[in-house]
Design a protein around this nucleic acid. Structure first.
Lengths: 352, 352
DNA sequence: AAAAACGATGAAAGCGCTTACATCCGACCG
DNA sequence: CGGTCGGATGTAAGCGCTTTCATCGTTTTT
């Protein structure tokens, strides 16, 4: 049942190299403390014995696990994959390993996963977004586990955040559509409980429109339950079925959904962007290649992953830690958005 | 620098519950050994003290890390994400945590990552595909680390494999095209060093064609270097530029590439499937929604992740372990493939 | 030349758990 | 009623490292 023990231990190496175990340990952790001579004997002994140190013992004795945890909603979303990919690569350069857990559905299970990780001794926990059950943060506080939040630049200043401003990006996107003369908007949003990033994107749109005296009629607002292509198709169909008039611009909370909307539009014979402008959020691999190419916000996944890693390494190894400012999430204008056809309904006066 | 110590230890719980430390440990690991009374006192004490056991100490004392490692080429590919997602969810139900490392590029670095994991005491390593540096397997052997290989059903019987037969699936796909009357084939392949799965897919196509006396002319075989959409576009462009005649069917080694090919075809005014049939491999989220929907092989990512988890749990917890047989990777016929136009060049006689 | 300082090393005490092994106690047996 | 058994518990010896502190030559200082 139990894995048979590998018998080589640090003590064996010490014996072989004719030094004390303390010296072997020093060779590994602070080589300069040891004389050239002893050091090379130790290295040779390690080689010869093919010794691999026991991480658990190391962690126990040093109170350092050299492990970082990440709690992610899902790995089905390419952007998260890219982020983690970058994060892991960077961390590994500092000899830190990544403990991964996925959980979107239940906040309680999320706390449980976090507890498991604390038990594992993670030295830092990476979280996506700010909205997590208080119990989760309490846990981290109680055990003094540093945390870093990513994929958002953070609304409240309670935690270190490394990411971009979902709200601002959303505002920018909306302004783009407004500047093209659009006055009638639709939206397809995937709203998962406690997904603050999406909420901010939605809020960004609505607030910006409200300033222009525009609201999205309920019938033109489709709430869907998955983040994938199908939802975009469903969403658009629902919006078109709801009323006889149709929005001239459609904003989707991510690119998968926007892709679905573009696809469905073509299916229904609606010309994009002539009859309907469509915009997304994320800039997926595919987005530039759609027909028409999708106007969207480019989310800096890789950059976030790398920045998070740098932050963690600085914090853990050098004690100092500085979150970089909010990152750029630029608007990428492509051909899925275009000027609105000349207004058919009387222009409302500007609000405010 | 070092994280301040959380002072609650098992001994504190023992004291509070008025039992020995052994009893506390037993409550956690084998509750039935302990009387109802003592047990509940211990549980209460744990509650009150908010004790979280120290995983490193646990691992050291028990020689069990309850940790599983996975080495993955990249997280940028949705299918890998889905696989890991499923794997992690299942493992966590058995209180096993997942250590993740990504590395595609360098085989040496892969071995290094594996070494790190062995140091961490992983009880099993999950690998994608069979082709890895011998040093990697030597390492696992030396430390008696069980392994399971996935994303392939395995050619050599040296390791437990849980996956599907890339070669067979590829044959099936090719036969489909042949049965539609195609005789002139092109291929876009992304060939990464030591990617056995892709090699098998390619071999499956070529062998099947050869049996019909067909070979893919070098000019119609585009080797690309990324697995993403852009490569598909580039690949198709290259193929079309190379000769004046054009294949009637195009096989791509994955769906991202096939997607790119479809997109580029439309761009160039080539009708799919009338002028060119295109097939992929993977069945991405998008594939069913492309225009036209993509004929492909459905890769059972989620199923593989779950099956791998089950296998590991059985092996680790119950000692017995049985790999399920090869999994289904069905051909999904959609509209991107159709009957070849009536042959324009004289039909070759059947080979062999 | 004695004192002080330093660099290299070793001895040994943990780190916080698990797990033989020993012990105790009441139930059950002949 | 003494002896045996078995369940519940405690004692204490590790698990394989790190790290403090002491030790011991060697330099450097005064």
């Amino acid at each position: 049942m139990t894995r048979p023990h590998k018998p080589v231990r640090l003590a064996d190496v010490a014996r072989r190299a004719r030094v004390s175990s303390a010296t072997v340990s020093r060779v590994l952790n602070d080589p300069l403390l040891v004389s050239e001579q002893a050091r090379s004997r130790v290295f040779r002994a390690i080689e010869e014995l093919k010794w691999i140190p026991n991480g658990a013992a190391k962690a126990l004795a040093s109170a350092r696990s050299r492990t970082v945890g990440i709690l992610i909603p899902t790995l089905g979303h390419q952007n998260f994959g890219v982020l983690i990919d970058a994060l892991q690569r960077e961390l590994s350069r500092a000899h830190l390993t990544l403990l991964l857990a996925c959980d979107e559905a239940s906040p309680e299970r999320r706390v449980q996963q976090a507890r498991k990780m604390v038990e594992r001794g993670i030295e830092c926990l990476v979280l996506i977004g700010e909205s997590h059950p208080p119990a989760l943060f309490d846990l981290l506080d109680a055990y003094r586990v540093p945390r870093v939040i990513t994929y958002t630049s953070g609304r409240d200043r309670r935690h270190p955040c490394i990411g971009f401003d979902n709200h601002a990006a959303s505002v920018q996107l909306t302004r783009h559509l407004l500047s093209l003369g659009h006055r009638s908007f639709g939206m397809i949003a995937h709203l998962v409980e406690g997904n603050d990033r999406i909420q901010q994107r939605i809020a960004g749109v609505q607030e910006t429109l409200r300033k222009e005296g525009i609201t999205i009629p309920p019938a033109h607002y489709a709430q869907v339950d998955s983040r994938y292509v199908t939802s975009g198709r469903d969403g658009l169909r629902r919006i078109l079925a709801a009323r006889k008039d149709r929005p001239s611009a459609l904003i989707c909370t991510n690119d998968y959904i926007a892709t679905g909307a573009i696809i469905e539009a073509r299916h229904l014979g609606i010309a994009v962007p002539q009859d309907l402008s469509i915009a997304g959020f994320d800039d997926t691999d595919m987005s530039a290649h759609l027909n028409p190419p999708l106007t969207t916000i480019r989310v800096p996944s890789r950059e976030m992953g790398e920045a998070v890693a740098r932050y963690i390494i600085d914090y853990l190894e050098h004690g100092k830690a500085q979150t970089p400012g909010p990152m750029e999430a630029p608007l990428i204008v492509r051909e899925s958005t275009a000027a609105a056809k000349k207004t058919t309904s009387p222009r409302r006066s500007r609000g405010r």
